[in-house]
Design a protein around this nucleic acid. Structure first.
Lengths: 212, 212
DNA sequence: GCAAGATTCTGCATACCGTGCAAAAAAGCG
DNA sequence: CGCTTTTTTGCACGGTATGCAGAATCTTGC
C-alpha cells in the first residue's frame, strides 16, 4: 500500500541490496540446514560479504532471517493515531493491523514458507514473540492516547490491544496453515467474530461491562 | 496451593538446592549489574559451583534468571482437562490460569522485583514471551480437545486461549505495577470484564456471533 | 563401615557469537 | 585526479555453549 522508493542514491541502493542479500542467504540456509547448523560465516559467504559486515546489518541471526521492519512500531502507532478519532478503537486497531500484515502477505509463497520456518525453529519463534511484544507496547500507548485514559489506571488499552493483536496473529497463522488459499481479510473477520461471539455471554455472568 | 515435597532422597534435595542457588545468584547479579554485564562464571562462582555445572541446570542465562517450571505447559493442560466438561471454556481457562499465576505471586515482594527486572531487560522479555507462546500452544490443543473442535478447522480454540492468556498477562502486569497492592483476583476479574464489555458491541456490527 | 555401581561435578578442548578498533576499500564531490 | 565521507574488512578479545573423560559424591547391599 505504501512506497518502497525514497531518496535512492547509489549508496542507498547498494546498501539495500546487501541487506537483502544477507537476509536471503540467512533465510535459505536456515531453511535448508536448520537454525543452529547455520553459521554467520556461511550466511556472509553466501551473501558475498565478510563475516564482520553481517553485524552492521543485523544484530543477530534471528533478525537476519526475519528481517523485521525496524520502524514498524512507529508506523503502526502513527497509522493508528491518524484514524478518525471517533472510530471504535478495536475497529481502528483491526484496520491498521490488517492493512499492515496484509502487505507482508502479497508474496504468498514466501510468506507461507516464512511462517513454516518460524514455526519449526524455536529461536525464531522467540525472537518473533519478543518483537510482537514490543509492538503491542507501542500500540497500548497509542490507544491510551486515543482514549484519553491513563494507562496506569485502566486495563482497557492493554486488553484491547492484546485482543486485537491476538486475533490478527491467529488469523495470520491460520492463513499460512491453509497455504494462503483463503483471503486474509476473511480470516481476520472470522477471528474477530469468534472473539466477540465467545466473550459476549460473559458480560452477563460478570455483572455488566466496564464501559463509560 | 500444591506441595513442593515429593520423593526427596539426599541427592534430590541437593540438586534442588543447587538449582535454587544458581537461580538466586543469577537473579541477584542480573538485578545489580544488568543482564549482559553478568557472566555465567560470576553466577556460578556466587552459587558455589563450576561454570560447567551451570549448563547442566539451565540452558541459558535467561532461563536461570526466570527459572520457569519446565512442566508448566503440561500441568496447565492437565488442569484444564480435569475441569468439569460442561464449564464455559473461557471460565475454565480463567480459573486454571488464575490459580497458577496466583501461586507464583504469594511472595509478593519477590514477584514484583521479578516483573520489574523482566521489564527492563529485553533478553528476559524475549525469553518470557517465547515461553508464553509455548504455553499458549499447549493450551490451544487442550481447549480444542475439550470443545471437540478440530484446531485445523476452527479459529475458536486459538482465539479463546489468546484472549484468556492475554487478559491474565495484563492483570499480572498491572498487579506488579501497583506493587501487589490490589489483590490479583480482582485484577483478573477486571481484565475479563473489560474484554467482554469492549468486544460486545462488535457482535452487532459484525453480523452475529460465531457460536455453536 | 565398606566395596560396587550409579550419578553428578569439574576441567579441558573446541566452535561459534558479538563487539571495539583501526586500516583498507569504495563512493561522492569539486 | 585529489580530498572527504562512508562502508567494508581483518584482527583481537571475551563470552556463550557443548562434548568428553576423569574425579568426586551419593546409593545400595552386604
Amino acid at each position: 500500500m505504501s512506497a518502497t522508493t525514497e531518496a535512492t542514491s547509489h549508496r542507498e541502493r547498494k546498501k539495500r541490496a546487501t541487506r537483502q542479500a544477507i537476509h536471503e542467504a540467512a533465510f535459505e540456509l536456515v531453511d535448508q540446514l536448520g537454525f543452529s547448523a547455520t553459521t554467520i560465516e556461511a550466511i556472509s559467504d553466501r551473501a558475498g560479504v565478510a563475516s564482520r559486515t553481517f553485524w552492521s546489518y543485523y544484530p543477530s541471526k534471528e533478525y537476519a532471517v526475519l528481517d523485521r521492519d525496524p520502524f514498524l512500531a512507529e508506523r503502526l502507532r502513527d497509522a493508528l493515531l491518524t484514524r478518525p478519532a471517533d472510530e471504535d478503537p478495536v475497529q481502528a486497531l483491526r484496520a491498521v493491523l490488517e492493512g499492515y500484515v496484509g502487505d507482508r502477505l502479497v508474496d504468498s509463497h514466501k510468506a507461507v514458507r516464512r511462517q513454516a520456518l518460524v514455526r519449526r525453529e524455536p529461536h525464531l519463534m522467540a525472537a518473533l514473540a519478543a518483537s510482537f511484544d514490543e509492538l503491542e507496547r507501542a500500540l497500548v500507548s497509542a490507544v491510551a492516547e486515543r482514549l484519553g485514559t491513563d494507562p496506569a489506571t485502566s486495563l482497557r488499552p492493554s486488553v484491547l490491544v492484546m485482543a486485537a493483536c491476538g486475533a490478527c496473529r491467529v488469523a495470520q497463522q491460520k492463513w499460512a496453515d491453509e497455504q494462503g488459499r483463503r483471503p486474509f481479510h476473511g480470516l481476520v473477520e472470522e477471528a474477530f467474530r469468534e472473539l466477540a461471539g465467545e466473550l459476549t455471554p460473559m458480560a452477563a455472568l460478570s455483572g455488566g461491562a466496564g464501559r463509560r
